[in-house]
Design a protein around this nucleic acid. Sequence first.
DNA 1: TCTAGTTGCACAATCGATTATTCTTTGTAC
DNA 2: GTACAAAGAATAATCGATTGTGCAACTAGA
Lengths: 342, 342
Amino acid sequence: MQLETATIKTIADTIGLSLTTVSRVLNGVAKKYRISKATEERVLAEADRLGYIPNQAARNLRLKKSFAIGLVIPNLANPFFANIVSVVNQVLHERGYSVILTDCNEEEKLEIEAVNALSARNMDGMIVIPSGRGKKHLELLRQKRTPVVFIDRYFEDLAIPYVATNHYDGALKITEYLIANGHRKIACLQGSNHVMPNIKRVQGYIDAMKGHGHDPFYIGGNGFTFESGYLETKLLMQRSERPTAILALSDTILLGSLKALAEDGYRVPEDISIATFDNSVYLDFLACPVTSVSQPVTDIATIAIKLLLDKIEQQSTSGLTEQEKILISPAIIYRSSIASIP
Amino acid sequence: MQLETATIKTIADTIGLSLTTVSRVLNGVAKKYRISKATEERVLAEADRLGYIPNQAARNLRLKKSFAIGLVIPNLANPFFANIVSVVNQVLHERGYSVILTDCNEEEKLEIEAVNALSARNMDGMIVIPSGRGKKHLELLRQKRTPVVFIDRYFEDLAIPYVATNHYDGALKITEYLIANGHRKIACLQGSNHVMPNIKRVQGYIDAMKGHGHDPFYIGGNGFTFESGYLETKLLMQRSERPTAILALSDTILLGSLKALAEDGYRVPEDISIATFDNSVYLDFLACPVTSVSQPVTDIATIAIKLLLDKIEQQSTSGLTEQEKILISPAIIYRSSIASIP
DNA sequence: TCTAGTTGCACAATCGATTATTCTTTGTAC
DNA sequence: GTACAAAGAATAATCGATTGTGCAACTAGA
């Protein structure tokens, strides 16, 4: 077997035709250029025999198109993001695109580097879940006319489409459910306080409380992490006035919170009720299964890709329409972690 | 601001030098080609002013090097794989490589397509966790001299390096621990029975049983999935002779198994003991925290990348040495899911 | 002053694929 | 028999970066 990789030239030489003809056949435009059936078949047969695979770098250079989509996400170790990547990846591959991934570890510096690196690789489009609050590198993409879509996290003042859960709505509903169950002292353990999902969720919590005539009881924490949930819960339970319920704004926060509660001997839901976001699969199997806001991951990913591919294929230069700001209302999955209190 | 992307030609034209000189300065080989300090500075200043980013497709084509590593994995939704990808991604980006990801959804067909697509993109190297049992597409990579390293799953008869947990050892130890706690009727719920980790784990289970004079009690299941764990446990508990312990060969299987046990009213560990693999973070928070074999994900990923980059950078054409078949013994994390029985 | 060597930079080919343009041959109509 | 059209395929430029080789201009030593 030949060690040399076959190129269009290899094929052209072995069957004595020009590069042009071979290229046209392989691109399926033989008819358009009146290439005879016989020639077409000879080319195809030879390409097959040599195991020809077109060099993408050459195509990319010539066509200024990479057939690749860049994916920039905060942290793959978080199952919620991993799920999004999984779905996005699958759909894009079906559509013939490669996926170039970067995990930014929630650091803005890495995010900027990633966006620039992807830009150098001529991405046909990008899907970004921003880690930081900086926008300059993202605006530069618009100048370069690279289509971008945000998932989950977004900037409202940027003319870049986004698809996300209606975080506000989810938080509002689940807080109202807690209130309906008699809770007043509901503590909210938040994530990174500069990202949109967190801002909206906190606002939902606040509005639900106020809407029912209560002041927000407590808002603390500063990251979508296990550690933040753990520390914040420890602090929380040492206050003179303890909460009757905790609303964790992510599953990672929840696990930390549960660990703190368990260490201090609090039982769920007897001693304290708890609710969370994200609805990871293991919530059903915890000591006490936890009620959760369930984000429609598959829908979000699918819609985002549709938006992106539309932009890529039409290159519509029109401004941002309302249809490109999409929020999907989440469902709430009821489990046994919330007790009714008088 | 200019909308056109700056190229080397742009820079050369605006300061009146040749492409050659600009390229050499930007590649940091100015000294080698005796380019004056003054010229060098003019070039750098202009590149900076124009926000020049080298076109990777052009470099890739010319250098036959993509500065990218292909990653082929079975399923990102599985936290174990997501963690691997997270670590791999981070280390590679530090080293200046991009990561091109494909999730194969555990399908061999997708795996083959992915490997070919990555090959067309001239990957400098690839890290593969095979989904299927086919090897032809992987052998073709050796012909093309693309360095490859397997992680977690591997083929012993292929001259391709691998880094994995010592699955056999892990299964042996945890089974012996169950035996030491008085268990004899230990059921083993397996994953995909054609992949190496599963084969080795099952063998460890069998050898531990036999080593202590017992016949393997039960081996069932056929996938690293929630469903397999659930169904198999339902079947298992309907047998006339019930197990006193279950060894789930992954966390996903575990969750399914726990659901089945809970539905039928069995308590862990009072009615039945249970142990698992993977040590996901949520194991601590289950109704009964579950004892688990903990795979050294970070170590595995780090070593695999070291092997790969060594191969890429030296292009050592030497055969596979023993040092390129690396198995790391896992630790066991003891929790309360295993009861001592008389 | 002349030669040999050094300094500073440019020419042009190359990587593989695409494509507008051009060229040749064959067929057809009057 | 001439003119012209259509069929079938080739020439050559192009995308952006890299690099072996070549060529002035200048310097230093004899």
